[in-house]
């Protein structure tokens, strides 16, 4: 079983839910938690554990071979991303702009742009008892998150037994990274705040899930602030509301210093247990 935790907007409690839920469940059975918010991976502030291994993530980019090149400029013509530019007598490759389509390389009449691997990020594996934690991290300066997300998911697939529960902390937004992180999971939990901003961004996230034809439910974070519009929306749209995490300043304070809320705040632990019960009723968890 694979569950992703996502949200339309950043800062609504995605990482809080992913880390606390994974930690709590790992007290019952083994769990894999993968942080796929590779631009700003923050789950690691909350899950400490023994470091098992680190693996670099590479992707393929062309590398100019000056000796073979006849400066015909075909590479620059076929590149739609302006990643290959002919400047005078030189061909420059801009790694960050390259999407790895191989067109320049394979269509070069001189074979002067062979593809080589290029490091764009890394995956680190940690273990804390029955909680296996994977962190995907994009190097600063890189713009394309998808290859690192893909590799981290692959790692989670291959390294662990098929039956083990996998929880993904997805990136925010509604564009390619979140689609990559959610397209192959069995269930998605969308987390939101009960405010106008929260609701507006939730609706966008719901649109994505419907487009991907995914099974999903909603958790309200900071329940008690704002208004009841999110609850009404769930009813109107017949989307299961699977949990409400209460609004507490102590939660914000615990989060600030990297603490797990389920450990120290009983009200939040209860809310999480309820989410687990609801996931069982929905047959997402056994």
């Amino acid at each position: 079983m694979k569950i992703a935790i996502a949200s339309g907007k950043g800062g609504t409690g995605k990482t809080t839910l992913a880390t606390n839920l994974a930690h709590l469940l790992s007290q019952k059975f083994p769990v894999v938690l993968a942080d796929l918010d590779v631009e700003e991976p923050n789950s690691g502030f909350f899950i400490k554990g023994e470091k098992i291994q680190e693996k670099k993530v590479f992707r393929m980019i062309p590398e100019w071979d000056q000796d073979k090149c006849v400066l015909c400029g075909n590479c620059q013509r076929v590149c739609k991303f302006n990643a290959v530019i002919k400047l005078g007598e030189e061909i420059l490759v801009f790694n960050q702009l390259c999407h790895g389509c191989y067109a320049c390389s394979e269509l070069c009449p001189q074979n002067a742009l062979p593809m080589t691997s290029y490091e764009v990020g890394k995956i680190t594996e940690f273990r804390q008892n029955d909680l296996h934690f994977l962190e995907g991290r994009l190097n600063v300066g890189e713009e394309q998150a998808v290859p690192v997300i893909k590799e981290t998911i692959n790692f989670a697939e291959k390294k662990f037994a098929p039956g083990i529960l996998r929880i993904f902390d997805a990136p925010p937004g509604t564009s390619c990274p979140v689609i990559e992180a959610t397209k192959d999971v069995d269930y998605i939990i969308l987390i939101t705040e009960p405010t106008p901003f929260g609701l507006y961004d939730l609706k966008l996230a719901v649109e994505v899930m419907r487009e991907l034809k995914k099974d999903f439910g909603i958790v309200i974070n900071r329940h008690g602030i704002g208004n009841n519009d999110v609850i009404r929306y769930c009813k109107d749209e017949r989307i299961p509301l699977i949990g409400k995490i209460p609004n507490m300043k102590t939660a914000a304070e615990t989060y600030a210093k990297g603490g797990l809320l389920s450990e120290t705040i009983p009200e939040i632990r209860n809310a999480l247990e309820k989410i687990i019960d609801n996931l069982r009723t929905l047959e997402v968890l056994s």
Binding site: F81, N82, A83, I85, K86, L87, G88, F94, L97
Partner: peptide, 15 residues
């Protein structure tokens, strides 16, 4: 108006 790589393209023009 290009989506990606405006910097290198302008640099090329300037060059």
């Amino acid at each position: 108006e290009v989506a990606h790589g405006a910097g290198p393209r302008t640099a090329q023009k300037l060059f």
